[in-house]
């Protein structure tokens, strides 16, 4: 009986002593950090498509004969500043997180969260200002887009508060809350405890905020300049 020595198609195998020995590598690289990076990356890709669709709709609609822009409520400047602050606070929180400074970390997290909440309130205020200026949802195409864009963007910002709350909770309990169903999964939790453990999640949270800040600036400029 001889050994089958022809390496199979697609195998990274090598033949040693007439036996097929498979070299390690390939597959199995489950790493919770990389995994969430991929998931967030995909989420942002899908969101990019949402906003790209909205922006192209805006540009197409803008070229039609009856286009009338709407004045923008001044409070939007404040709101923009709030969102910048939230984004910056999350970015700044990375340092104390790495350094293990829980107090500073949670302060910055709270700053980010409150600034974000204030942003949402500010956007609502902007809606009321628009209404007060006589621009309801259906007043002009520009006004319609104002409500539509701020609504879709605002909902995504609100969605960001979910991971934010989870981050806070994790910081409280000192470690990541056990995911139901996570038990069947192989996962290395070493070093997950303490503020340093939240760095990857915080990083992703910050990326999400930067992304929404970027989107907001694009939308705002679009509405300002047209």
């Amino acid at each position: 009986m001889t050994r089958f020595s022809q390496p199979s198609r697609g195998s990274r195998g090598a033949v040693a002593e007439g036996r097929l020995v498979v070299l390690p590598g390939g597959g199995h690289r489950d790493d919770p950090v990389a995994r969430s990076q991929i998931a967030v990356g995909l989420l942002l890709a899908a969101m990019t498509m949402v906003f790209a669709a909205l922006v192209s709709a805006y540009l197409v609609r803008m070229d039609l004969s009856d286009w009338r822009a709407a004045p923008l409520p001044p409070v939007l400047w404040v709101n923009t500043a709030l969102l910048v602050a939230a984004s910056a606070a999350l970015e700044a929180a990375l340092r104390p997180a790495r350094a293990g400074d829980t107090r500073r970390l949670s302060t910055l997290l709270w700053v980010a969260g409150l600034a974000t909440a204030a942003f949402i309130v500010g956007q609502l205020a902007a809606w009321f200002q628009m209404r007060a200026m006589g621009y309801g949802v259906a007043a002009t195409p520009g006004a319609s887009f104002f409500y539509l864009l701020t609504l879709v963007h605002g909902v995504h910002v609100l969605g960001g508060l979910v991971p934010w709350v989870r981050l806070l909770a994790r910081l409280r309990s000192g470690r990541e809350p056990e995911e139901p169903g996570g038990r069947a999964r192989a996962r290395d939790r070493d070093g997950d405890d303490g503020p340093a453990g939240v760095v990857p999640a915080l990083r992703l949270c910050a990326v999400y905020w930067h992304f929404l800040l970027g989107v907001w600036i694009v939308l705002y400029l679009l509405m300002l300049l047209t």
Partner: peptide
């Protein structure tokens, strides 16, 4: 799917605006 469904979502929301809020997208 991940990249093509968002425009449908947007189209649906805009149509809802037109339908419920009287906008003219």
């Amino acid at each position: 799917a991940l990249l093509s469904f968002p425009p449908l979502f947007v189209a649906g929301v805009m149509l809802l605006f037109d339908h419920l809020l009287g906008t003219s997208f």
